[in-house]
Each structure stands twice: as C-alpha cells, then as structure tokens.
Simulated assay, not measured.
Amino acid sequence: MENSWKPKGWLSILYGFVLQPFTFLYVNKAKLFWFYFILTVLVSLIDTKLHAIPNKEAWYQSIYLTWIILIACPLHSFLVARRYDKSQVRKWYASWWATLVCFLVVFILMFLGRTFLFEPFSIPASSMSPSLNPGDQVIVSKKGYGNYKYLGMQIYKAEPSKALQRGDVVVFQYPLNPSIDYVKRVIGLPGDKVIYRNKSIFIKPLCLDESTDCPSFKEVEKKYKFTQKEDGSELKYYQESLGRVSYEIKLNSNHIDLTSRYFYQAGTMPDEWLIPDNHYFVLGDNRDNSLDSRYWGVVPESNIVGKVTFKW
C-alpha cells in the first residue's frame, strides 16, 4: 500500500477510548494490539475476582484496574501515531473503516457467544458452600435451555431442547423476582415427590402408570466426613450422592428445620412437595443457610439460564 499514509492523532485517541486495544490496528501495530488485548482480558478477570464480594471496607472497592487500560490505550496509540514511520508497510487493517470492522466482528462474536453459549457468573453468597463459595467465578453453559439473555437483557426465548438431571448445578431467574439470578442444585425433576425431613432428602420418582413396580420414597445417600466449628456453630460435612453425581454438603447441628416457613403445597405434608410438569426442585448445598425451593417453591423450566460447567 502507499507509503505516504500516516494515522491521524485525534482518531487514534478516539479509538483508544472507544475501541481500546483495537486502536493499535489503526496505527498499524498488530503486536501492540495483541499485547493490550490479552492484558485487557487478564485485568478484567482480576477486577471481576476483586469485586465479586462487596466489601465497603476494602481499599480496592472503588478502584478498577481496567481504568489503566482506558487511559493507556489512547495515550500510547497517540504517541505511536505522532512518531509513525511512513516508510513501513501499511497493513490491510490500518485504516479507520477496517479497524472498525475488526472491532464489530469481534464484538458480535462475543455477543453471540455470551448470549447463546457460555456466560460467566460470580458467586456472591455462601448458600452453595462448600461446592461454591463467595467470590468463586463460574462458567454457565446456556445452549439448549432456551433462556437467552445478554447482561440481564432478554434477547430470545425458545422451548428448551435440554433437560436437567438430578445433581446439576444451575443458574436460574429467581421465580419471585426474575431480575435476580440464583444458583442452586437440582434435586427434584418434573413428576417427582420430594421430602426434606430431619436434614435428609427422600425422593419418589415419577411413575407414569402407577403400577405395583413403581418405586417408593428413597433416601438420598449421604456419608459423614468431618465436623468443623464456624462462628460458634457446629457444622457437619457430608458427601451426598444423587445418581452418578457426588458433592459435599454441610449441615448446622444448631439449626432446626424451619418447617413452619416452608412453601406450602395443597394436598401434601408441610415438608413434602410434588414437582409439577416443566418445573424443578432446587436446594443449596449449605442446607441450613440457603433460601431455596423449600421456602419459595419450584423453578419453572423457562427460568433456567444454564448449567454450571466450570469453576475458578
């Protein structure tokens, strides 16, 4: 391409603020683009981890490391534009429109990926401890569950093509306030009868023909592991198993079952629930410190955002 071209300083500053790392494509510096792109991803992950748990006393709560990128990109790209060597070969991406196209392509791919495939979430509370603790980050697989949102905005709704299994950890819209996302473990499937009594779970699976071969209530197996004192309470840890899925739960020996506060379903005992079609019964692994289906009812299938597939 022509050797007389030189990037405009004002446009490099504008792109540095708006497009950030992509401004280095405009000033013909692909290596700097990749450096700042990777740095932006790493810094964003650190910021996410630091701010996952609100803590007003922490010095970093009002500070974001991504601000450094926001300042560094326009300044650095402006200096590169000012000192630009006209004799160097101008690459295809070094123009205002090509840089903009590159940004739009990457943004659209990220938008589609986050909306329809995978989305990160932060764990703000301890209701899923010890499996998931405050500050943990999880990746949720969304494909096939039909509830597609981007940054809280509903993009598309469809009939689910995937069914959840017992033991799956899922993110869903809280039925009493769909603007809030919850994370819990699936215990009961559509058609199941579930009992939570004396800190034990009993499940009677759906039986279509109600024949004599229909299974009766079966207690979910749990094996004692150890006891630990936390904040004056005696917490007992167990290994619980649902089918092929095993996970840890913890129970507070000083906490009684709050049966009087349980969600009441007509025709059942206070600690017993029949799961309707297209609904799920969910519990937190921190059984005595979890607001879940015992207290507000079952989760509609349409509220399921996705299944947790990765934690860091």
Rank of each mutant, 00 (worst) to 15 (best):
Y145A: 01
M269P: 02
I155P: 03
R114W: 08
E248L: 11
A158T: 05
P300L: 07
D181P: 01
F118N: 00
Y247T: 05
S141R: 06
I68L: 15
E221R: 15
H76M: 07
Y295G: 11
K223L: 12
G306R: 00
H51G: 01
V305K: 01
F33N: 00
S95K: 02
G191L: 06
H255C: 13
I256D: 12
R83D: 13
F281G: 00
C207V: 08
V80L: 10
C73R: 01
V170Q: 11
Y36G: 02
L251W: 00
S141T: 01
L42I: 14
V282T: 13
F111M: 13
V298K: 00
K6S: 14
S161T: 15
N252L: 12
L274D: 02
V43D: 06
R261E: 14
I38P: 09
P21N: 06
M1H: 15
H76F: 04
Q239H: 05
E119P: 04
S293P: 01
I275T: 06
V305C: 01
S179K: 15
Y295L: 11
D288T: 06
K8A: 03
F103S: 01
Y238L: 00
V170R: 06
Y196L: 06
N289E: 09
P215Q: 09
T212F: 12
N133C: 10
P190V: 12
I69S: 04
W67K: 09
S131P: 03
W5H: 13
R166L: 06
I38N: 07
L45Q: 09
T66I: 15
F17N: 09
S126V: 04
N177K: 15
L75F: 08
Q88H: 08
A81Q: 06
F37V: 02
K307E: 14
F22S: 03
N252P: 09
K236V: 09
F226W: 10
G306E: 00
K8C: 03
S161M: 11
P270N: 10
V27P: 06
V305F: 01
Q173T: 03
N254E: 13
L274F: 07
Y15G: 03
A94P: 00
S77I: 04
S293N: 08
G16R: 02
S290L: 01
V105Q: 04
H76D: 09
W59G: 00
